[in-house]
Design a protein around this nucleic acid. Structure first.
Lengths: 138, 138
DNA sequence: CTGTATCCATGGAGATACTG
DNA sequence: CAGTATCTCCATGGATACAG
């Protein structure tokens, strides 16, 4: 079982290890551009300039940097057609990228219901309210 | 169905709307401190100072700011015991926070397998390799 | 104890110009 | 086309001092 339900007070090794996995995924998907790039490449292989057109607002610097990271993580492959003139570079999403779908879907589902919840507030039933006995002095 | 499998070239409304949900979730979970705070509160309600001790390295400023955000999102409740002296404030995770578990679990599972994959590289079977015909000039 | 206010260092990201 | 190099701006976050 991945996430312990009742972690002890101090950070245990198991706790930090589990968190590291979550953070790995979060860091890969996080940031402003990773998702748009991945989505743009779902439509098939694209060249650098085409990507920059599809991912609205991204600069060449950022696109280059983000593509490198995604490539290092095995999510896409960079291939060069040196014979073409001028040289053509295409970026192709790997099938490994599909393994991200359950993650993205989980994020999407939660985000969607959360937005609904925030927009249409319920009765604010607060749980385990206010005072609880053992207030540890500190 | 949340995420379209084959988005068109340009960003459609459906595409950006779906992405907004993902980003909502990503933004809430992202950052350096959100996860550690949530995890720390899984063990039960805690006071400000106790949280600062449990979440290693966080400053009062950051803790205060992050707690506000989590409260605004309905994930926790801030309650004040004004009668106590000095005043005591406790933060309690709401059961709504449990809805994040599938998300965190998905992130965790992917992050774990990804780290294994990165650490123990497979045969680098590149798909849809290199050259593909219709190179759109631009 | 529970924060807030202020100052300040750092890094991330945009704009621009340039190279192969 | 496919990037890289520089410069600069600004938001984020740490440190510290202070307040209720």
């Amino acid at each position: 079982m991945p996430i312990p339900t009742k972690p002890p007070h101090l950070h245990t090794q198991a706790c930090t290890t589990a968190m590291r996995s979550v953070r790995d995924a979060l860091d890969l998907l996080g940031g402003k551009w990773k998702l748009p790039i991945i989505l743009a490449l779902l439509g098939g292989p694209k060249r650098f300039k085409q990507l920059q057109r599809d991912v609205l607002g991204i600069t060449a610097k950022m696109l280059s940097k983000e593509l490198k990271e995604l490539e290092m993580n095995g999510l896409l492959v960079r291939s060069v057609q040196a014979d073409a003139t001028p040289v053509a570079v295409t970026y192709t999403l790997q099938s490994y990228g599909d393994t991200l779908f359950p993650v993205i879907e989980a994020l999407h589902d939660w985000g969607l219901q959360h937005r609904n919840r925030i927009m249409h507030p319920q009765v604010p039933a607060v749980e385990k309210t206010a005072v609880f006995e053992q207030v540890v002095a500190a």
